[in-house]
């Protein structure tokens, strides 16, 4: 058994549209070890949710998926049939979504929805499934867990529903948890609680996690590895501490300037912004995708950009590492 749980190489997702093919995700690589947390960061439309749905095998029918390799443990996700994928989903790979308010079926009780996952994948009795549901509801910090089982989603608040979604995802003790912006729709105070809960649970259950977010503050606290996505490409990947200490792609640095940093950002000082908008991905996309918004764009940026850096910390930018000082960001 290898240490690598998930390996994705050269994943490409294309969406045919009326005005041409939308190259939503272009040749991204990442891998994940057991118990490791990878955070995929990027703004809306950068392809992070599509990437996670591609791993789950839940892409819409119109989206074309290609990859050199997509492997989960010893299952080849590209050749796996529907039966195999169904056995993985909810069982070994579980997912939490952005919208807790609408992600639970309004017509069934919390108990029905929680036990369904376990009953689908394990040959257990209903009472065993119920006991497991109660155990997990308690684990995600829901009080009066037993009485919650007979409640319906509309009777719970957003924060509670997201806790239920987390419990749902953990019913079968998955090896990999994909959390797609799990805290975005929640109040700020609840966000921190949910995040801490996710981190504690992944550690406790030795579960790998892909945390998709646009909030770098979140990443800094929980991720082992970071993958920064921009317009369908991974522009920088590496260990979280290293990427935060020496961000090498101008986009990563731009993102970091957008969040206040305790001790560094002065009170009252304006936060940074990244000028411009994400380019259209319909039709041929070439060269550095960030060049239209990059302060250091040069004619050479129109050519294809190779990956640079060492094996653990890679980035897609032709500028010398010294670009950091050139920008004069410290000032």
């Amino acid at each position: 058994m290898t240490d690598t749980l998930l390996s994705v190489k050269n994943l490409t997702l294309n969406i045919p549209t009326g005005s041409g093919t939308l190259h939503a995700v272009r040749g991204i690589d990442f891998d994940l070890k057991r118990g490791e947390t990878l955070s995929i960061v990027g703004e809306s439309g950068s392809g992070k949710s599509l990437t996670s749905l591609a791993v789950m095998g839940l892409l819409g029918k119109s989206i074309k998926r290609q990859a050199d390799e997509m492997r989960f443990d010893n299952v080849d996700l590209q050749t796996a049939n529907r039966r195999v994928m169904r056995d993985l989903r909810g069982n070994r790979i579980a997912m939490i979504f952005q919208e807790p308010m609408t992600s639970l079926n309004p017509a069934y009780t919390i108990g029905d929805q929680l036990t369904e996952t376990l009953l689908l994948h394990r040959k257990v009795s209903k009472s065993v499934a119920r006991a497991r549901a109660i155990e997990l509801l308690e684990k995600v910090g829901i009080t009066a867990a037993e009485s919650r089982l007979s409640q319906y989603p509309h009777q719970l608040s957003g924060g509670l529903r997201q806790r239920v979604m987390i419990a749902l995802a953990l019913m079968c003790e998955p090896d990999l948890l994909i959390a797609d912006e799990p805290t975005t729709a929640l109040d700020v105070t609840i966000q921190a609680q949910i995040l801490r809960l996710l981190v504690d649970l992944t550690r406790e259950m030795n579960m790998a996690m892909i945390l998709i977010t646009h909030d770098l503050g979140v990443v800094a606290r929980v991720a082992d590895k970071v993958a920064v996505m921009y317009a369908g490409e991974l522009v920088e990947t590496g260990p979280a501490a290293e990427v935060f200490a020496t961000p090498s792609h101008p986009y990563t640095r731009g993102l970091l300037r957008c969040i206040p940093q305790p001790g560094k950002t002065e009170r009252g000082a304006p936060l940074g912004t990244i000028p411009g908008i994400v380019p259209s991905l319909i039709g041929e996309v070439s060269g550095c995708v960030f060049r239209t918004r990059c302060p250091h764009a040069r004619p050479e940026c129109r050519a294809d950009i190779p990956l640079r850096g060492d094996a653990s910390h890679e980035f897609k930018c032709i500028h010398p590492d010294g670009a950091l000082s050139e920008e004069g960001e410290a000032a």
Binding site: M56, L58, R86, D87, L88, R89, G90, N91, A94, M95, F97, E99, T102, S103, L104, N105, P106, E116, T117, L120, H121, M165, L168
Partner: peptide
Amino acid sequence: SDFIRTARAKGAGEGRVLFKH
């Protein structure tokens, strides 16, 4: 809707997704 995606993410089969959910 989102809860249908949740049902699929649980590993429910197509028939179950369509008729139960």
